[in-house]
């Protein structure tokens, strides 16, 4: 459906069409506007945060520990006198970077495997699908926690563990798309014209599978960020002094009685960021899913 629309668009007017589509998407609901605004803000802060941050995120000031929010320190300071606002800003960059790497790894591996599985079929398909079933039959977070614990606590290992649990979703998604596209005219035409399997996969299928993958990615960014900080919170992810949001919240946990701002602000940043990505992803999916669009009548008719 969307695949067709996107494929049918001539590239010359792509920019203008994209602009128009964006405007239409934002016009659907103010929730879409809110989601997009949060995502843009977070991306902006992640890229430029270092320039905005008033302090070095790891700069100690033992004369100013556990200070409440004030003009000098907007989000207060932590137990070592570090500026929490600067640390939260640095955390935005870490979260975005980590989510991008996790999703890049799982999308690249998962989509490729899904396309191969759908295109080749037979025994290869059967084996790949049983392996993905095995992964999907297991609670993702528990598996990620077990893998991260096995590899030893570090942010890199968390990234790897989450990529390991994320890829099967993309394999299944891509395979489903390929199965429905495989028998369509443009693929058959390419086959008749003598294109090989590889050429069909790279030339025709990837382009058509991509839109649905992009929607899924937008839904998964929030989850990737959330899972990373949950693992850090459990001590399996980022280690001190890395200003990862989950790790800062762990540090702040013991000070919650005396310094409420310490775990509160990084948590707020985390919650709002995940909310933004989820709103955007949810809006995109609703917008693209034709069942939820158009003239579905309510009870009132």
């Amino acid at each position: 459906m969307i695949a067709e629309q996107v494929a049918a668009e001539p590239e010359t007017t792509g920019g203008r069409r994209a602009l128009r589509a964006t405007r239409r998407f934002l016009g659907v609901s103010w929730l879409n506007v809110l989601g997009a605004a949060i995502v843009v803000l977070v991306l902006f802060l992640a890229v430029l945060g270092r320039g905005i941050a008033p302090h070095d995120p790891n700069e100690l000031d033992l004369a100013a520990t556990l200070q409440g929010p004030a003009a000098a320190h907007w989000f207060g300071t932590d137990n070592l006198g570090r500026d929490l606002f600067s640390r939260v800003l640095a955390g935005a960059r870490i979260s975005i970077e980590v989510a991008v790497i996790i999703l890049f790894l799982s999308v690249a591996f998962g989509t490729l495997l899904g396309i191969v599985s759908g295109l080749v079929g037979g025994l290869v398909d059967e084996i790949i699908m049983r392996i993905t079933d095995l992964f999907l039959a297991f609670p993702a977070f528990i598996l990620a926690a077990a893998i991260a614990a096995t590899l030893g606590p570090s942010l890199n290992h968390t990234v790897l563990a989450l990529a390991v649990v994320f890829w099967p979703w993309y394999t299944r998604l891509a395979r489903g798309q390929v199965l429905s596209l495989r028998e369509r005219e443009f693929v058959l035409a390419a086959r008749v014209a003598g294109a090989g399997t590889m050429r069909i996969a790279t030339g025709h299928l990837v382009r058509n599978v991509l839109p649905i993958i992009i929607v899924q990615v937008s839904l998964d960014v929030g989850y990737a960020i959330l899972a990373t900080s949950a693992l850090s919170f459990l001590g399996l992810g980022a280690q001190p002094p890395t200003p990862e949001w989950g790790a800062i919240i762990t540090d702040g946990r013991s000070y919650i009685q005396t310094a409420w701002w310490f775990p509160t602000f990084p948590g707020l940043a985390l919650a709002v960021t995940v909310l933004g990505f989820n709103l955007l992803g949810d809006g995109l999916r609703d917008w693209i899913d034709p069942r939820l669009r158009g003239s579905l009548g309510g009870v009132e008719g």
Binding site: L31, G222, L226, S229, A230, F233, G246, I249, R253, I256, W260, P263, T264, G267, L270, A271, V274, L275, N278, L279, D282
Partner: peptide, 20 residues
């Protein structure tokens, strides 16, 4: 909005806030 907020809020942070 409330549904997406429920899915977005980090459980460990919500737990701390409720305790606080």
């Amino acid at each position: 909005l409330s549904a997406i907020a429920g899915l977005s809020v980090p459980a460990f942070w919500l737990a701390l806030l409720l305790q606080l």
